[in-house]
Design a binder for these strands. Structure first.
Lengths: 334, 334
DNA sequence: GTGAAAGCGCTAACAC
DNA sequence: GTGTTAGCGCTTTCAC
């Protein structure tokens, strides 16, 4: 069916090796032969067979990406950033969603390995070094962790300074006079969330405010979970005067809860969220947020992976990008 | 480095062919042999080599997905839907962004073909039958078009009834008494947009209202473009009393323009948008929208592709999913 | 049911 | 520079 290097070679009147060199872009080929071969290839409709090439060369020029859910704007943006650096470099991205489920993540990583990806970028579901990642690293497959580190796994990580970002946000609220500040977050098993929770605690402690555990709502990862968490906090008789939400899903859920309870922002409850999305300036008042450099995270991860793919054997690097605190109306500062 | 079928075979004391049959899950193998082989494979850490398998069997179990931009929530949701049906079926998705650019799209499709994907799902940048897609179809590679059809290309398409959706929306606005209804859309070269524009015209015509071309702002695909388009419409002395935006990007741009001009919704200008996203109920008033079944579109595309992959040779099918008109505050109906 | 042998289409030594 | 010759790891006839 398809035109092979061999076919092109025989038409061009050269050996398969020469045709392969010309078509594959490696080794020496005389300009004359090259032209003849390329001409033949074009008229014959030759198309490089990446699968055969990969089998012979042991390099697939594919990279696996495992995110929690590509529908989460944060991961979509990061995926885009990653693609923007990997694709021009000749790599194709294999995409999969883990839904924060370890078993799924294991299956996906395994599927990618059997497809012999040259490297992997994964958003780890759990913070401890699970076998599927340890084995991967032991086998020498380049791995870049995205958004979250994994304990005792010495690989490149690209993430933001979650603790600092959260602490800034909560500190800002404290500066505004708030003492009872609620936190709505998803599970601390997700290490980025754990760091944000830690940042929340640090800011309070630094201000000499005792952490009231009843003001901390730890829940699932969905918007509905955020809604429930926020509602629980808000329905107590001694409700918080301000809330910090640990990610965009929690922000949406909390916003909805606030509305359903008829609470005004920032008069009744001040709000600061993590993640800056398009709609944050569309709502009234606009949401004060901790903004992450979403594309940059993806790009950096791509660059780190490319370096490894190009043979960089230096020590694992932990890239911590700074967050930006964007003050708008919801915190009550204006 | 890696453990091969051959290695497993020699340890298990069978021929390579038998081991391959047991490990590959095809052909006959006695229960006894199978157990021995699987046991050996497990202890030796055998991992199937999908690349070699693909070369030999001519089936890669990979599917290429080309979207305009994975960051657009519409495409992210569709990608998720696609993944939800393809992944359980054993397929891996190769993802790429075309940015509505034909040349990029061509390069990406070519890259996927050289990787011998079993099938492709693409959101075509242009509505006319360009060679890269025609050749693909001629070569017998299953192709499913996503969101938009391509003229004279007889392949499966999964999309929504854009014209009907747009016409409903505009008709609703007319029913509310509006006569000067503006339209903010991206380029009509994008056929889904062309259909929405057509729906807008149809609704007006049906109501006996002459289409005023000055009320139609055709612009680029970004939110900034939408902002510019809406601003242009709104700054005329005889501005529209209502606006219909053809997609989520245009909606955001228009919302921002409205705010910057100090115009209230729906008092000064009523608004209805295409696409229903999370934030549409977060803003005040909530946005009245034409909702697309985003996941369903992706899932259907996946099912169509699976059918083709499984040998379905029936006539190309055009799946048109219905949209849903969701009335909220921005249109002024409440 | 199992084995031998011939590829799949390409890269990679190595000799010329 | 170019050709020869082995594979890469698996599937796939086709005998037995």
């Amino acid at each position: 069916m398809g035109v092979t290097v061999k076919d092109v070679a025989s038409v061009a009147g050269v050996s398969q090796a020469t045709a392969a060199r010309a078509l594959g872009g490696y080794g020496y080929v005389s300009p004359v032969a090259r032209r003849t071969i390329e001409e033949a290839a074009r008229t014959m409709g030759y198309r490089r067979h990446a699968v055969a090439r990969a089998l012979a060369s042991k390099v697939t020029h594919t990279v696996g990406l495992v995110v929690s859910d590509i529908e989460n704007p944060f991961f979509a943006a990061a995926a885009r950033g990653l693609s923007d650096v990997l694709e021009p470099a000749g790599y194709t991205i294999l995409l999969a969603n883990s839904d924060e489920d370890l078993e799924r993540e294991e299956r996906l990583v395994e599927a990618f390995r059997s497809r012999r990806v040259d490297g992997l970028v994964v958003v780890p579901s759990v913070a401890s070094a699970t076998p599927h990642l340890v084995d991967l690293v032991a086998a020498g497959v380049p791995l870049v962790l995205f958004d979250r580190p994994v304990r005792k796994l010495d690989v490149d990580v690209v993430m933001v300074d979650n603790k600092q970002g959260a602490s800034n946000a909560v500190g800002h609220l404290i500066g505004l006079g708030h003492r009872r500040i609620g936190l709505v977050s998803d599970a601390p098993e997700i290490s980025s969330s754990a760091e944000r929770i830690a940042g929340y605690r640090v800011a309070l402690r630094k201000a000499g405010i005792a952490v009231d555990e009843r003001l901390i709502a730890l829940t699932g990862s969905t918007q509905a979970d955020g809604y429930r968490g926020a509602t629980a906090l808000l329905e107590t008789r001694d409700r918080p005067t301000a809330i910090f939400t640990a990610n965009n899903m929690m922000s949406v859920g909390t916003l909805l809860a606030l509305r359903d309870l008829g609470l005004r922002i920032p008069e009744d409850v001040a709000l600061v969220g993590f993640d800056d999305l398009e709609w944050t300036t569309l709502i009234e008042p606009a949401l004060t947020v901790v903004r992450q450099p979403v594309h940059e995270i993806g790009r950096r991860a791509g660059e780190r992976l490319l370096a490894r793919l190009h043979g960089d054997r230096s020590a694992a690097r932990r890239t911590r990008l700074p967050t930006e605190f964007v003050v708008r109306g919801s915190c009550g500062a204006r």
